[in-house]
């Protein structure tokens, strides 16, 4: 393999089959998880897992974009590419969380929202737009964690949150580096340059104010070696942050959330 830069290497690793996926994170962080299905419109999107469980003693709503590990699992979860119905299922669970003042935890891991005829006809753009707007004013704390791939609109559709965290091996990007290279240089082989230029890893994103915290992964972060120490620390971090966010008034919570996104961007 020719040498590639660190950014693109991270993108390729983030897509690795053996990295922990959303269901692994839910199993490691949440107890007594009950999965709840369906968007009440027309289907249950298997790319998104949603439900309720305990984070320590705290009931939380959990939403994850699930990729699966094996090929049958991947097919069953549509390779972690969510349909409009998936975003609507997530929003339905978020609204239930709001009603019971329960925090919302999202695990984001997707190459992008599903790109297909049915997804377009069922309003992929509308579903994502609706989530962005509703999450901005949801009257309960939200933390979104980018655990692997943070692919464009499909990722931000579940990442309007009081805090956006990112695993150190994850990436979060407006466009896949391959597509970017294809558009700009008409050549996919420039994907590594594109990855570098897009500043899609945790460190530059922290600096730009796009994410709020980087979660340092252990070396060789693989499912088989899922490491109790790492997930214990993550669980404690989530718990203490939710406690802090829950102590704010709704007004303060929502104003701070809006201002955080409001600030992003440089212009004259």
């Amino acid at each position: 393999m020719p040498s590639i830069n660190k950014s693109y290497e991270k993108v390729l690793r983030a897509r690795g089959k053996q990295r922990p996926v959303a269901s692994d994170c839910i199993a490691a962080c949440i107890s007594d998880f009950i999965e709840l299905h369906g968007d009440r419109g027309c289907k249950d999107d298997s790319a998104i897992i949603a439900g309720i469980g305990y984070l320590g003693q705290m009931p939380v709503t959990v939403i994850g974009i699930e990729k699966g590990h094996t090929t049958p699992e991947k097919i069953a979860h549509n390779f972690g590419a969510a349909s409009p119905e998936g975003y609507r299922k997530a929003l339905r669970q978020m609204k239930l969380a709001e009603k019971f003042h329960r925090p919302v935890l999202c695990f984001v891991d997707t190459a992008g929202a599903y790109c297909g005829i049915e997804a377009e006809e069922h309003g992929q753009a509308e579903a994502i737009a609706r989530n962005l707007a509703e999450m901005m004013t949801l009257k309960t704390p939200i933390i979104s964690v980018i655990i692997g791939e943070g692919g464009s609109g499909g990722a931000i559709g579940l990442a309007v949150a009081d805090e956006v965290w990112m695993f150190s091996g994850a990436y979060y990007s407006v466009v896949a580096p391959e597509s970017c290279a294809n558009i700009l240089w008409k050549d996919m082989s420039h994907a590594d340059e594109a990855a570098e230029s897009l500043c899609l890893t945790a460190d530059p994103l922290l600096e730009l104010g796009i994410i709020d915290r980087k979660i340092e992964e252990p070396e060789n972060f693989l499912k088989q070696q899922v490491n109790d120490e790492f997930f214990n620390a993550l669980r404690i971090g989530l718990y203490t942050t939710f406690e802090k966010l829950c102590s704010k008034s709704t007004r303060e919570l929502l104003d701070t959330r809006y201002e955080k996104f409001r600030r992003v961007g440089r212009y004259d």
């Binding site: 737009a129 962005l132 707007a133 509703e134 999450m135 901005m136 004013t137 464009s152 609109g153 931000i156 990442a159 309007v160 979060y172 990007s173 407006v174 466009v175 970017c180 558009i183 700009l184 230029s197 897009l198 500043c199 899609l200 994103l205 730009l208 796009i210 809006y258 996104f261 409001r262 992003v264 961007g265 440089r266």
Partner: peptide, 23 residues
């Protein structure tokens, strides 16, 4: 769509504008 050349800064404009519309 989002302007690729501004990377994640442009993607976040989606959330920012959607929030302003909602308010």
């Amino acid at each position: 769509g989002a302007r690729m050349q501004e990377g994640m800064v442009s993607l976040v404009q989606m959330a920012k504008t959607a929030g302003a519309v909602k308010k």
